[in-house]
Simulated scan of single mutants.
Amino acid sequence: MESQKRGPYKHEYHVDVRYLKQVRLLRGLTLKEMGKQMNIADSVLCRLEKGNLRYTTIYQKRFKDACGRLKVSNTEAIHMGKSIELRGIREGGNQ
């Protein structure tokens, strides 16, 4: 019920850099298109997704704003989180 109080696009997923690629792929966007949504260069987005650039609060805010424009709901964010978690478990088991 907590997520309903926050509204459909107010989930805190934007603070986790792992959601960047998930959102981009779920919306069928290229790096260039997602970069435009976030108002950053596609090369910067690529470095963020790969972990080669620090995910600062500025990028978090831009991602959050882009998710609002892309209408990423809490339900989608919860499912992305579960997918990320399962991938981490699966990759951790393969090491």
Rank of each mutant, 00 (worst) to 15 (best):
L26K: 13
L31V: 07
G35P: 05
R69N: 13
A41R: 12
E85N: 10
R62D: 05
K82E: 11
V23G: 03
R47T: 09
E2Y: 11
S43P: 05
G92C: 00
L20F: 08
D65V: 13
I84D: 08
K61V: 00
S83E: 14
Y9L: 15
I58N: 14
E91T: 08
H14D: 12
L20H: 02
H11Q: 06
E12W: 08
K50H: 07
K36F: 02
Q60I: 04
C46G: 06
P8W: 00
G7P: 14
D65F: 01
T56P: 12
I84H: 04
T56R: 10
L25S: 01
G7W: 07
M38Y: 09
K36H: 12
K50W: 06
V23A: 00
Q37C: 12
K82P: 00
M34F: 15
E33S: 15
E33Q: 15
G68S: 11
L45G: 01
V17T: 08
C67T: 01
I84M: 08
M1T: 04
E2L: 10
E2D: 09
S3L: 11
D42L: 02
K10F: 04
K50C: 10
S43L: 06
Y13L: 12
A77N: 01
I84Y: 07
L70K: 05
Q37S: 07
A66K: 01
Q4E: 13
D65P: 00
R24V: 06
T57A: 12
V44A: 03
Y55T: 06
R54M: 06
K36R: 15
G51T: 04
K36Y: 10
P8Q: 06
K71V: 05
R24I: 07
